[in-house]
Design a protein around this nucleic acid. Sequence first.
DNA 1: ATGGCAAGCTAAGCTTGA
Length: 253
Amino acid sequence: MKIITYNINGIRAVLKKDFVAWCKAAKPDVLCLQEVKALESQVDLSAFQDLGYHIYWHAAERKGYSGVAVFSKIKPKHIEVGCGENIYDAEGRVLRVDFEKYAVLTTYMPSGSSSEERQFFKLDWLSFFKDYTKKLLRKHPNIIINGDFNVCHQPIDIHNPIANWNTPGFTEEERDWFTAYLRLGLVDGFRNFTSAPHHYSWWSYRAGARKKNLGWRIDYQLFSKEMQPLIKRCVHLTEAMHSDHCPVLLELN
DNA sequence: ATGGCAAGCTAAGCTTGA
């Protein structure tokens, strides 16, 4: 079973690249996408339907902004669109699919980089989402929570921790939030398998950052502790070059 | 310390992103 999370930075942009072919080769059973930046009606997804995917979508109200989607080869027994809070659901940030054995929730968390107001918005979201997850874990003890968290957890997860010590996404408050979030009973899939440095999931488009591997690890696949026996591996698929992020793959039984 | 690139808005420049 392969679950992939991928911030694609615009589905219309990646469809002009080799995204369908990549998907065909990568063969995810569940593909979680963030920043689709489109309504489902704005794109032709028949190629994915032909590959056997059921498609679920949560767009933002604002055109061309944010939005998440899930492509699943297995038909879920339930689909939950949004988190129930209008202020966040207006931005298309949460989508959950429930299967027989476990649930998969994907999220595109807000960025705080554009203004102080947005950083406050993000901090409010983080607080909300931790409470939301706490309740969710009671109903769904077997769950994978993945997506673009826009939070870099530890110094090992960023190429230049000193220079970025108080940059939105790497503030002390956000790092501490991540630690507390995991304490709800979640495991960072990637760190479950490696403690090695220099592994990132996002690189600035600017100044050749990706070529130089100057990045941040902000895309995660977290699994609840109950699921540990099922988890086989979790890796970054750095060869996929459709956006400024790379996909993250979680493989399980 | 700053800016550097890209997508998509809307129609040449702005907003967002981290």
